[in-house]
Design a binder for these strands. Sequence first.
DNA 1: TTTCCACAGGAAGGTACGGTCT
DNA 2: AGACCGTACCTTCCTGTGGAAA
Length: 416
Amino acid sequence: MTDRVFARGSTPFRNRDALSDRYTPSELVGRDEELAQYKEYLEPVVWGEDPNNIFLYGKTGVGKTAATKYLLSALEADVADYDDTHVESVQVNCDSLSTSYRVAVAIVNEIREPHEQISESGYSTSEVYEMMWRDLDAIAEETPPDQTTIVLLVLDEIDHTEVGEDSILYQLSRAEENQNLQRARIGVIGISNDLTFSDRLSPKVNSSLCQKKIFFETYDANELEAVLEQRASVAFEDGAIESGVLSLCAAYGRKQSGDAREAIDLLRAAGDIARSDDREIVTEADVEEGRARVERENVVEGVRSLHEHSRYTLYALSTLAAEGETPARTRTVYERYELVCDLAVADPLTLRRVRDFLRELEMLGAVTLTEQNRGSRGGQFLEADIRHPIDVMVTALDGTIDELGAHDSIVEYLPE
DNA sequence: TTTCCACAGGAAGGTACGGTCT
DNA sequence: AGACCGTACCTTCCTGTGGAAA
């Protein structure tokens, strides 16, 4: 009777979802100045006037997206009380949308119903732009003719998109002069984690899209702790958090350049550890363990979604590490990589390509690369090493190792 | 100060693929 | 079916780099 697999035991959580990405707190802590300014810039919308284009910038996890969600939902709700104006927001995250074409497709698909979605290829760029304008205008068509329709287009992580002439940002900045829209009035809210992004824009686009700029200051230690306290008070039972836990998470967030999201993720991971241990109290030790676990999980998850040959590269480097041959220069890694390709019965790609893989793996946090320079007796080169213990790499690479067989050097690290 | 090493990584161009349109 | 489109993924070529040595 008692040997069930799942059971609810002790938990420190009251509402764990309050620590999720999707959760919008009822009040934003420590962002008073930014919110006041933001609100002022949105004011014309309340009056049914032409909206400002607004540009938010600041490091990751400092509340830009949260502030936007919070203010826009309030704005949409409050303007609904005035029957001469209708506000609607269209939100698109440009992460992984590196081309204008894809951003435009994403905007169209965001507006359209699921059964009318368009595919990500096949059209010309100008066709997609036309669809975009038509769809934006269509939002206004649905409202009574005497109503002013304002569409706020939120482009989150806008710094991931291209910026050249004819780019989507250029198109958006000229919507008015080109009379692309008949009825709808559009305001663009750009959100960037890259502080220098607006410098990359042409002066024309810059002055139009970055009409009103708001800089989101990095959270200082106090603000960060206040943010955590607020979330924790919703997420955890009273007294479930040992003193010191929050400041430890906050310190970690500070280290990640004031990133509240990282700090919150860490707090959640610590809570998860306590819960899986069937405890009601979260300790500082849980935070430490959570930190290691979060980092590992990111790597393991990341590696799974990598390109096949990128994993071969990591496999090659891991075997070198197991033999104590790291740090190893790119050339050495490449030679081992060629052996791995032999195992895989695959043609090896070029050295140039493997260099790209190594950089990619570095971004993921799986690999460290160090620049070396031995002058005229060796020149410049990179040295690579794995960033986590070999057994973590073996876990991350399990599918690949199953497929290719284990290299002698790593056999001892394989799970039973 | 100049030379030189050994590579890093940008640029350009090719191919294959999954799409749409007529 | 066949013309076109945008993109992922490669290769090839080549310029730039920074410190040790002369």
